[in-house]
Design a protein around this nucleic acid. Structure first.
Lengths: 287, 287
DNA sequence: TCCATTCTCTGACCATAGTCAGAGGATCGG
DNA sequence: CCGATCCTCTGACTATGGTCAGAGAATGGA
């Protein structure tokens, strides 16, 4: 662990010193950094002022002024959102699009300047290392929280889960009546749901882990194992001493993961028509 | 190449969003960022004002004011350097050391928060990826320049080169009379010499590559191959159409590198008592 | 219909970061 | 010992980034 933080901190030093320059592509455009970042964030498709405030975490007064500055320079139009006339939408003018492309070019150029001196082989190694680091850093900083099953993002996660079951089960999958019983955890990254799962009360002793799902492009990042640990911890907090779960035979990776996590196969404990395997694990007090 | 810059840029986004927080450990100490960075940079051992100005690239007036602020807070003492009384030296007071340790702790804590949610296996992968990326990013951003052989940093590089030959040759190595003929390239990283080499005029046609050296901890980063390429380009600029070099049998990696770079073995062309192998390469016009 | 809330904007304000010109003492080379 | 240069400091100034309180229009729920 000390080794790991030392490497991270060392890398951080190298990185800010040497590649921090990538962000300085935002400088030297004759416009201050804040304004430029805003321009870049508005992007080709435009965005509501509200979104911008959230994404860049800016004070509303401050943002208004930044937007006006971009407006005065003829780069951005701000007009009311027809759907909700309290809201305003910022879009790039043609000149704004040019400025945006210019920023994008600068950034690309700087990236080339960094990658350029390397041999092909080294570039490949760097790209591979950065992809790995990217995935893991994103996995490590995923935001996990308890949600109500009616939370819109949670609904979307459940929808994707059911859709996947539909694709993977030979005879499809019918979710039946919506069932909102239980306590749920949602993992998000940049606001997108990336993992989901819940614990349902079966008895005082036993909780059932259900609807565990990890987004396609996040598999292999250990997110499933982490979600499982968190769900077990949640079950323990809810007073259970044992968790059970069921799964279908087509979900091979899931079965392998339960196995690694210390689950043991048990007899059928429910009448779920899609279930083919049942597992249980005793919860011991953490540490 | 596009793939590589795309990965770099994507990583940069992830990184600034998620780990940029590491630098924010410098915030929330009740002191502004600039002052805090300065405090950290002074470090346990103190530093001259001159050094600080160079390292942080600050205006001298601005730096004076930052230092006074730290002085007023009782964290730093500034007193004239006895060796050169124009210069002033900044050192941390006991309170300053506490503040410094506090910063270090915060930074460590943040690194732990990032690395913490990962499994041991993932941490290992991340650490490995970041080490690789660190090495390659540093290699890619090494600063290469032509130097006079009497340049102090160049002298140091040559000293280390001779020291290594002394260690590696079975009967040691005697550099003999200092010989400053030739044109030299020096690669530095953070001001430290990391690679060195020169081209000496043998005839109008032929240049000799000599004193090529790469620092221990930079081997395997492709720096040798890059230096060799740069020296060949230098020889071409100097008007040569062919380069030769000699080497000792104990320098196995070097020999392998010359081989990969397209050098072919030739007959002894000099009376260097330490040389056991001689190589040559025809220079074709670049591109 | 009314009240609470949401969204954006305005004005007033402040700290931080940074630039520039020049003063004055210390040092160095000839 | 003189002039050039180096190093630091001072004063005057500017831009950037940001906070806060509140106004006013639009919306949504009871």
């Amino acid at each position: 662990m000390d080794q790991d933080t030392a490497t991270l901190r060392r890398f951080n030093r190298t990185y800010t010193q040497r590649i921090g320059a990538l962000d300085e592509s935002f400088l030297g455009t004759g416009r201050p950094l804040g304004v430029t970042r805003l321009l870049f964030e508005i992007g080709y498709d435009g965005a509501t002022v509200r979104e911008l405030r959230d994404r860049l975490d800016l004070d509303s007064g401050y943002l208004t002024r930044l937007l006006r500055r971009l407006g005065d320079d003829g780069l951005v139009d701000v007009h009311p959102d027809p759907a909700d006339r309290r809201r305003r939408v910022a879009t790039l003018t043609p000149a704004g699009r040019n400025a945006w492309r210019d920023l994008d070019d600068r950034s690309e150029e700087l990236a080339r300047a960094i990658v350029g001196p390397l041999t092909t082989r080294q570039r490949e190694r760097l790209t591979e290392a950065l992809s790995t680091a990217d995935l893991l850093v994103r996995a490590a900083t995923v935001h996990l929280r308890e949600v109500s099953p009616t939370d819109p993002v949670a609904r979307e996660a459940v929808g994707r889960y059911f859709a996947e079951l539909g694709r993977r089960f030979p005879r499809g999958f019918d979710p039946g009546e919506p069932d909102h019983a239980g306590t749920f955890l949602l993992a998000t990254s940049d606001g997108e749901p990336v993992a989901f799962g819940g614990v349902q009360h079966l008895s005082d002793e036993t909780g059932e882990i259900k609807r565990m799902w990890v987004a396609d492009d996040w598999r292999g990042a250990g997110l499933g194992a982490r979600m499982l640990r968190e769900l077990e911890a949640l079950a323990a907090r809810l007073g259970h001493t044992r968790v059970v779960l069921d799964t279908n035979g087509t979900l091979l990776e899931a079965i392998a993961m339960y196995d690694r996590a210390g689950y043991t196969a048990i007899e059928r404990y429910n009448d779920n028509p899609y279930a083919e395997h049942w597992f249980a694990k005793e919860l011991t007090a953490p540490r």
